[in-house]
């Protein structure tokens, strides 16, 4: 059970200042089944309104950190504070604490099939608000508004198996946005999406950030990084944070990107794909150097 002080600190976050620290992870270490390490002494602080990209190769611990930030996994060692209160398994068992935390943090999973589990799109989007105690009328209003915003109103009564990958991603995002969270966690948001849906999603993420939402994205897509993030946190393959800085600086550090397996030293010899992106100046620079 959380102490009264914990809950008071948690609730005080509602009237927090713009530059307030919202997440603080300290020396977090986590292993799956106590055998497969995923986080190794990871420390990270996220401030309100930031766009943070967690960068790293497959299996480096990005998704695990997102799950820790969403209170789905708990570090074996170290601590995690959100909005001034420590987030632990015991604290989340408290209804008030759980509701407060879940309302403020939304998580868009990489696998939309896992996230879209209800019989219809409408019920899927309503799931979060209903669980957070909103009335049926208020929930219906939110479902309607979010569907209209994401242009999926015509899918309302569709079953998930009748949706394309892009549509499922939209529904997954809608189901999270309906809860109006302050922080949005995205796990590989642009993976397996066609270019048009990718572009739509990037615009949406930027819009959400401009409206004051804090964005944390786990990705290894370097092409969209300077648009999607104003801060990059780089993971090494031994599950540690090895760099933290603005995208420009990180993307110019070719040696770092090669060492964490985000860039292949041979990649520059091959044509055009990553070099044609208009925003990715660092790739042009590194290409010229090579």
């Amino acid at each position: 059970m959380p102490s009264a002080v914990d809950i008071a600190a948690f609730d005080a976050s509602v009237c927090a200042r713009e530059d307030q620290e919202i997440f603080r992870v300290e020396h977090a270490t986590f292993s799956y089944l106590e055998r497969f390490p995923a986080l190794n002494d990871v420390s990270l602080t996220v401030r309100r309104g930031e766009k943070v990209a967690l960068l790293g190769a497959n299996g480096c611990g990005k998704s695990t950190l997102l799950k820790v930030l969403d209170g789905l996994l708990f570090a074996d060692r170290g601590s995690f504070h959100a909005f001034g209160a420590e987030v632990t398994e015991a604290n989340l068992e408290d209804e008030q604490f759980n509701e407060g935390f879940r309302t403020r943090v939304g998580f868009v999973f990489q696998n939309s099939d896992a996230q879209v589990f209800s019989p219809t799109v409408r019920e899927e989007i309503a799931f979060g608000p209903l669980n957070l105690g909103l009335s049926i009328d208020a929930t219906q209003q939110r479902v309607h508004d979010v569907m209209r915003m994401l242009e999926i109103s015509d899918l309302a009564e569709r079953a998930p198996y009748q949706l394309s990958g892009g549509q499922k991603k939209r529904v997954a995002i809608a189901s999270v946005l309906a809860m109006n969270p302050e922080v949005l966690l995205f796990d590989e948001p642009t993976a397996a999406l066609d270019p048009r849906t990718q572009s739509w999603l990037i615009d949406l993420i930027l819009e959400l950030n401009q409206s004051g939402k804090t964005i944390i994205i786990a990705t290894h897509d370097l092409a969209t990084l300077d648009v999607l993030a104003d801060r990059c946190v780089v993971f090494s393959e031994d599950h540690q944070i090895v760099a933290d800085g603005p995208p420009g600086t990180i993307l110019r550090d070719t040696e770092l990107l090669i060492s964490v397996n985000l860039l292949h030293d041979h990649a520059h010899d091959h044509g055009s794909t990553s070099h044609t992106h208009p925003h990715d100046e660092s790739h042009h620079d590194s290409h010229r150097e090579h």
């Binding site: 996230q115 589990f117 799931f127 979060g128 957070l132």
Partner: peptide, 18 residues
Amino acid sequence: EVHDAMVARGYTGNARSI
């Protein structure tokens, strides 16, 4: 994964319907 996705959206064991 589905259970995680449910918990992430406030599910605590009570099914609710619209």
